[in-house]
């Protein structure tokens, strides 16, 4: 009953994640500092995870959902580490960040390869390990929410409240996924679709912030330039 709205939300989420990658790469493009690479990588992996999940809804391939869960968790780990290292002075933390970044990429590749080449492993993963992965993703999201809220409180700028709100909505969606994985009797219902919708709204918030920053500012600049004698 809920497969069609679920598929639509997964496809829309994947598209939004890929659009957001375009904006998330800009901090790295300007500074060329590796510590900002986690943003585009995180959102990119989330987009790939949603794409895989959408494929899994259309074509019921065994274990495809697990690949998506692993990828999504790694994406949130990327984002959490990016936020953690963003506070550190770049020269001191550069080496540590490069080691962590390489470890996460090696870990993710190993997991995906082992899941694809040895499908038997997926049987063990789908139960308790699946719950662990979702809890890990939720912990990472909680850290990001706290980090962004603290930076909002520090600056007390009304424009900085939107991003914590977006991450809180993603955390609500992730919590819904966790309940679904933990409860075997959980049926697709309004709560589950509501969780997916929360994610979609969260992504729309991110997109709104990116639009406000880059396009409204350009338009404003354009008007000022035109007004000049």
């Amino acid at each position: 009953m809920y497969e069609v709205p679920r598929l639509a939300i997964e496809i829309a989420s994947a598209i939004l994640y890929f659009i957001l990658v375009r904006y998330m790469i800009k901090p790295y493009g300007l500074t060329r500092e590796e510590r900002y690479l986690g943003l585009p990588l995180g959102f990119g992996f989330l987009g790939v995870a949603e794409t895989i999940l959408a494929i899994g809804i259309i074509l019921p391939i065994h274990g495809i959902g697990t690949v998506s869960v692993v990828m999504r968790t790694f994406a949130f780990v990327f984002l959490a580490f990016t936020y953690y290292f963003s506070k550190k002075p770049s020269k001191n933390s550069r080496f540590a960040w490069i080691i962590i970044l390489s470890s996460i990429i090696v870990g993710l590749t190993t997991w995906i390869l082992s899941l694809v080449s040895a499908p038997l492993m997926t049987i063990g993963i789908t139960t308790s390990f699946g719950i662990f992965l979702r809890i890990l993703a939720l912990v990472c999201l909680s850290y990001i929410c706290i980090h962004t809220l603290r930076s909002h409180i520090k600056s007390l700028d009304p424009t900085t409240i939107w991003i914590p709100l977006g991450f809180i909505l993603l955390a609500i969606s992730q919590y819904s996924q966790l309940i679904r994985a933990a409860d075997e009797n959980y049926l697709y219902g309004v709560a589950f679709v509501g969780g997916l919708a929360a994610r979609l709204i969260g992504l729309a918030v991110f997109l709104y912030v990116a639009y406000r920053t880059f396009y409204r500012a350009t338009k404003r600049g354009g008007i000022n330039e035109a007004d000049r004698p």
């Binding site: 962004t148 930076s151 920053t213």
Partner: peptide, 13 residues
């Protein structure tokens, strides 16, 4: 614009 975006994202440069 990028600095403003980073500030909004909660990552200080």
């Amino acid at each position: 614009n990028v600095l403003d975006f980073m500030k909004r994202m909660g990552i200080a440069y």
